[in-house]
Simulated assay, not measured.
Amino acid sequence: MYEYNEIINKLILWYQSNARDLPWRKTKNPYHIWLSEIMLQQTRVEAVKPYFQRFIHTLPTIEALANADEETILKLWEGLGYYSRVRNLQKAAQTVVGEYGGNLPADYFALRKLKGIGPYTAGAIASIAFSLPHAAVDGNVLRVMSRLAADPRDITLPATKTAWEEELTSVMPKGEEGTFTQALMELGATVCLPNGMPKCQGCPVREHCQAYKKNVVLQYPVKSPKKQRTKEYLSVFFLVDQGNIAISKRGEKGLLSALWQLPNCDREKAVPVALRDWGIINGEIKRMKGQKHIFTHIEWHMDCYFVAVKEKEGHTFLWLDRHQIEKEYALPSAFKKIWQEGCETLEEEIK
Rank of each mutant, 00 (worst) to 15 (best):
L148C: 00
I247V: 10
F109H: 15
T121H: 02
C200M: 10
S224L: 14
G79N: 01
K113C: 13
D266P: 01
P221H: 02
R206Y: 04
G283V: 04
S257I: 01
R25S: 07
E299Y: 04
K214Y: 00
S146T: 03
T58L: 01
F238D: 03
F317K: 06
A110R: 08
C209R: 02
Q53A: 13
R143A: 12
R20S: 05
W24Y: 10
W34G: 12
K223S: 08
E341V: 01
T296Y: 12
F295S: 11
G101L: 02
F52H: 08
S127G: 00
R250I: 11
V137R: 10
P105M: 06
L114A: 09
V86Q: 03
I73N: 07
I350A: 13
A258S: 15
E207K: 08
V191W: 04
V48H: 12
W24N: 10
W34K: 04
P198I: 09
C343T: 09
K312A: 03
L157K: 15
P198D: 07
K327Y: 02
L80F: 06
K213M: 04
K75D: 08
Q242G: 11
S146G: 10
A183P: 04
W14H: 03
Y31C: 12
C304A: 02
I117A: 06
I285W: 08
K115I: 11
P225S: 05
L320H: 02
T72Y: 01
F238K: 08
T296C: 03
V240Q: 00
I294E: 12
E6K: 15
S248Y: 15
N264D: 05
V141P: 07
V45P: 08
S224M: 06
L157D: 12
H297E: 08
L40F: 04
M145C: 08
C203Q: 09
R267Y: 07
K269L: 13
L184P: 03
L346S: 07
E78V: 01
K336W: 10
R85T: 10
L11Q: 11
Q41K: 15
A135L: 00
Y212T: 07
E63P: 11
L193F: 06
Y305A: 03
F317G: 06
M1G: 11
T316V: 14
L132C: 02
I325F: 09
I12M: 05
A330I: 06
A159T: 12
W164V: 08
K214Q: 10
N18S: 14
M288L: 09
G243H: 04
K269N: 07
D241L: 02
V137N: 11
G123C: 05
K249H: 14
M172H: 04
G202Y: 02
G118L: 06
L168T: 09
K289C: 15
A308D: 14
G98H: 00
N140V: 02
Y31A: 11
P119N: 11
I73V: 03
K174Y: 12
L132M: 04
N29F: 14
A68E: 10
N67W: 06
Q219M: 09
D303P: 07
G139K: 12
C192K: 09
